[in-house]
Design a binder for these strands. Structure first.
Lengths: 226, 226
DNA sequence: AAATTTATTAATGTATACATTATATGATCT
DNA sequence: AGATCATATAATGTATACATTAATAAATTT
């Protein structure tokens, strides 16, 4: 039996969206950097139409801003922006934690969350902060995915992306996150016990605290924007 | 001195977006109704390009879904969708209530909220449910606006829009909302007392209860979608 | 009559052309 | 040198043309 190549047709607009987003999140396109539609279409090697659609989408997601006759600009994130982003993200994830406790999780789901906590411990032990951050984000994404609310999941994903650059910037500046996992385990425990208020509260305090710390780190370095 | 006409240049894409949105929210375009790009461009009397941009935006906001070669479809809202929407909306608005209490409101802001409550009482007294709903929504929008977080405000606005059709559908089916304003006043009081947990909790229970009621009303009529 | 195959049509995604006009540049004046 | 005005240019928003191909209709086979 001949093996057929699986061919998923990706539109150019979708390709443009993904590539631009990747360049922004990985700092290949810097904060404040401007590009006209024509420049973006040259960069991505396609006509203006799909790049324009991609840019409109990224603008609605808050990663870039569009200025007529000046094209797109990678949105600098001010301290106020960070504050806003964290307030929303904290509220959304706490809602997810509460929903997990209300709806209940399977043992497989709980196991995955424990795995993420274990990975965080291991990566901390060997001082691998990048991998720690990955496992941390994975834990948070599980929390939201298992809340079983697709709209919530997409919202949180967008806010995690918006916060990506300042989380990565501060990763090497912050104290080693040795207490993080106590909160994570307490949240898991509250979920297991179906205590939605406790799950919500613990996670809320956890997120609020880390948001405050990130913001003060950035302020202490004298940055107004990133 | 000659009076100059104030001219704000609105793009056709923006015009298309607003008109389509208006038609959906006011049920001029019915749930499940399909239109190809060409049909929409005839309806709106413009070329496909701006209508396409408008449709992409409305799709990302969840009011329509796009299906290649079939165009757009006004998104029917299932019971599950309603549940999701209310879970998110409840979480977001509760976050706003808590933020209002944390940040504190001016006496003007508090006065506006009291005005909305008074309007609700008056409209209830004369059995004007449509105006009551307007005042109710106004109260909720104040809550979010005064939380002073632009991202949160836009999110809530989008979810209020998504919930608009089923709120309007159930408006005449629901019991007269005689207890609503006790909750509203309690929230205002908690905000005045700078008690963020209490503001959050009261509002959360309030929203959760009304969400459950709306959903059960729709189920009792035997509808799976609206 | 139902199932399968073939041909045709039309819908989208993209590229390109065009019109409008904001912005940059250059010239002139103070 | 700085301010103002005029002009040219280029960026966007829109319309239109084109290529691809999914979906539908028609023809053929069972």
């Amino acid at each position: 039996m001949a093996l057929k190549a699986v061919k998923t047709k990706v539109s150019l607009a979708d390709k443009a969206y993904r590539e631009l987003k990747h360049k922004i999140l990985d700092n290949e396109l810097h904060s404040g950097q401007q590009m006209t539609e024509a420049e973006v279409s040259v960069l991505l090697n396609m006509s203006r139409t799909p790049t324009r659609e991609a840019m409109l989408q990224l603008a609605s997601e808050g990663l870039i801003e569009l200025k007529p006759r000046h094209g797109m600009r990678v949105k600098p994130i001010s301290i106020d922006d960070m504050q806003e982003i964290y307030e929303v993200l904290t509220g959304l994830e706490s809602t997810a934690a509460a929903l997990c406790a209300t709806k209940g999780l399977t043992s497989e789901q709980l196991s995955l969350m424990h795995d993420a906590v274990n990975t965080m411990n291991e990566t901390l032990d060997r001082d691998d902060l990048t991998e720690w951050a990955r496992a941390d984000e994975q834990f948070h994404r599980y929390l939201v995915e298992f809340a079983d609310n697709n709209r919530l999941k997409h919202l949180v994903s967008n806010f995690i992306e918006q916060s990506h650059r300042f989380r990565m910037l501060t990763l090497k500046m912050r104290p080693k996150p040795t207490n993080s996992n106590k909160d994570h385990l307490d949240v898991i425990s509250a979920i297991e016990n179906r205590d939605s208020e406790k799950a919500r509260l613990i996670h809320h305090q956890h997120r609020e605290k880390s948001g405050r710390m990130l913001i003060s780190l950035i302020k202490n370095v004298g940055l107004n924007h990133i």
